[in-house]
């Protein structure tokens, strides 16, 4: 079913880039290939090749400054919004290079959504927050139904259905974050990037979001950056471990099934990091 959902965007991006749409196996929602990210002259991310599978939760873990957030921001071209920032290598989405000439980054970001560390609802009503993305994307169907569907998928509907016109900022932190997830998925993206989505939340709200992530992967492919290794272990199918070298450039140490990373990792560096003996 997801393959069917993916085809239009693969074709659209491929048509613009002139690249064959089947370059990537359909198993991968998004792929970084020999990706290097720079801030000015500073190399922040070194030769990362990371295939992220469709309908999987892929976790990215690593110490501060290893380029986790930079990596996810490269996946929907948010990295380029920083003045002087650039990349080398490729990010393939549906087999086509997202950085190729002719690809509209705004449209791309509607297909690869993002949820940030701190809940950032607009200072509008709950309803307006979810409807916002739909409106600017020219949604033609029944708006109320689409809002309800997104809120239900984000496991928030039952809590807000009687107060859709209340200000979004009146919600608790956990509810605000689920609202942001509802807003991100309202426009039916294929990939949802989450940059430490629970770091500002209490344990109960965190568990609610984790539960949601596990359910959302049935419809979306999810890439989550987290500092919380237990969270990576709990929610993800595959985990990438990034480290930072002497020149402060991040690089990929190990990428494997989450189960394996947390029971028997292949690299000493991974083991030192996840067991808390990293220095």
């Amino acid at each position: 079913m997801t393959t069917v959902r993916m085809r239009p965007i693969m074709t659209r991006v491929a048509a613009k880039t002139g690249e064959p749409a089947q370059e990537t196996a359909v198993d991968y929602a998004i792929e970084a290939r020999s990706l290097r990210a720079y801030y000015g002259e500073n190399l922040a991310l070194k030769d990362v090749t990371l295939p992220m599978r469709r309908n999987y939760v892929t976790a990215i873990i690593g110490p501060s400054g290893c380029g986790k957030s930079t990596l996810v921001r490269c996946l929907n071209r948010m990295h380029e919004l920083v003045p002087g920032a650039r990349i080398e290598g490729k990010v393939l989405f549906g087999g086509a290079d997202i950085n190729a000439a002719g690809v509209d980054p705004v449209e791309l970001r509607s297909r690869i959504g993002m949820v940030f560390q701190k809940p950032n609802p607009f200072p509008k009503s709950i309803y307006a927050n979810v409807a916002f993305g739909l409106k600017i994307n020219g949604h033609k169907g029944n708006m109320a139904e689409a809002v309800e569907r997104s809120l239900r998928q984000a496991a928030l509907w039952d809590e807000v259905k009687d107060r859709l016109n209340s200000p979004a900022l009146s919600l608790s932190g956990g509810q605000q974050q689920r609202l942001c997830i509802a807003r991100a998925i309202a426009i039916e993206p294929e990939v949802v990037l989450m940059d430490e989505p629970c770091s500002a939340l209490d344990p109960i709200a965190t568990m609610a979001i984790e539960d949601l992530i596990r359910r959302l992967k049935e419809r979306y492919s999810i890439v989550i950056v987290t500092h919380n290794m237990q969270q990576a272990a709990r929610v993800s199918d595959e985990t990438a471990f990034l480290m930072v070298d002497q020149d402060r450039a991040g690089y990929l140490v190990e990428f494997d099934a989450t189960e394996r990373i947390f029971t028997n990792p292949s690299h000493e560096q991974t083991e030192a990091y996840i067991t808390g003996r990293f220095s």
């Binding site: 290794m229 272990a233 029971t263 028997n264 991974t270 083991e271 996840i274 067991t275």
Partner: peptide, 9 residues
């Protein structure tokens, strides 16, 4: 302690 990897084993 939430042990993982060698500690868990």
């Amino acid at each position: 302690q939430h042990p993982v990897a060698i500690d868990l084993r």
